[in-house]
């Protein structure tokens, strides 16, 4: 097609981190970015995702090394807490910059 770039790709958009770009994972990452750590129930309440969805998305984020799942006793009660890893935080910042860059100069 003549309107496409010569190599058939959009360099900036192609660089997007697909793990973060998915809306449900993006909202999970955004929450974890602004909080220290939270458990499943808190993330479920804030994101509005179902248990199954939340669980599978967090597993994907954990596999990508973006979140860490910590099992911790707080006042003798077991909690499963989720927090962003250093890599996750950096990946989120990079994604933020890329998003800003994509829409730069675009008329409203």
């Amino acid at each position: 097609m003549p309107d496409e770039p010569s190599d058939g790709k959009f360099p900036i958009i192609d660089d997007f981190d697909r793990v973060i770009h998915e809306p449900a994972r993006l909202i999970i990452m955004s929450h974890l970015y602004v909080l220290d750590r939270a458990d499943f129930l808190f993330l479920k309440r804030q994101t509005g995702l179902t248990w199954g969805n939340l669980s599978s998305h967090i597993t994907k984020l954990e596999t990508a090394g973006y979140v860490e799942v910590i099992k911790k006793f707080i006042d003798r009660k077991p909690y499963t807490l989720i927090e962003l890893t250093k890599e996750g935080r950096e990946a989120f910042r990079l994604y933020q910059r890329q998003m800003k860059h994509v829409f730069e100069g675009l008329d409203e």
Partner: peptide, 16 residues
């Protein structure tokens, strides 16, 4: 708070 609120809304630790 831990016995009543956390089971309903979950546990969270906020930033410094």
């Amino acid at each position: 708070k831990r016995a009543f609120t956390v089971p309903r809304i979950g546990y969270v630790e906020f930033k410094k």
